[in-house]
Amino acid sequence: MSGSQGSRPAPGGGAGAARTGGREVSGRLPWMLVAPAVLGLAFLVLPLAGLLIRAPWSTLLQRLAEPQVLEALRLSLVSATVATAACLLLGVPLAWLLARVEFPGRRLVRALVTVPLVLPPVVGGVALLLVLGRRGLVGQWLEATFGVTLPFTTAGVIVAEAFVAMPFLVISVEGALRAADRRFEEAAATLGASRWTVFRRVTLPLIMPGVVAGAVLCWARALGEFGATITFAGNFPGTTQTMPLAVYLALETEPEAAIVLSLVLLAVSVAILAGLRDRWVAAP
């Protein structure tokens, strides 16, 4: 993680004579890995290049200044962040339960956690409507008791995003919990720490890299969420129209505007993630 590997001299690179005698095996690039790696990178990056090439650069700034765009961007960032916070609050304990507590049907529960990953997001949105909608099982009660309806509200956007993004967090944190050395928890117990203290002061710091990675994945997924959001929360500028929804609708009439919006979303998210990463890497 320190990134200082690059300064190591390449084997056989110092003395010219070393080249004639057999080079060290470790010095050869394994093409079996490098070739697919480069191909994979190209596969991931080329569509982005396509967007960049087709972008109408001349009108970019002007579009950026449009209040609707800024509003959608703000809504996207706020709702993705709140959704990630909600996922952390619920997902970390869930991951802990899956990783640390033996209970009957645990494998089934673990499989259920990944349902939102497999479910087409639009179906996820319909499912949310059936439960949390105005006539939904829970939604009906919410409206009758608290006068709260989730669909067509920003809270609904957050619910939809959290639903789709939480598995990323849970899976990542559960993996970190399984990889963590449990004997540290035992050591803490022998020092008199209650289970909650053990979790808070030992387990959580130990799995922090996994939690951060999961939160980043979760946030990115929430930011790009489209299907469940538009189905459950609808699409109305200012309250529920996030960037992906704006992009989709722009695509109907003005593909160029859609490209600009996508690039804005992309640039902002990359900037935020890169900033976060530096902070976390720099942390002691």
Partner: peptide, 20 residues
């Protein structure tokens, strides 16, 4: 003032069907 501007007519109809 609608509560939502749906992406297509089927999605609009779904909101009615579900009573949302």
């Amino acid at each position: 003032t609608p509560v939502t501007l749906e992406q297509d007519v089927k999605a609009t109809l779904t909101k009615v069907e579900l009573g949302e």
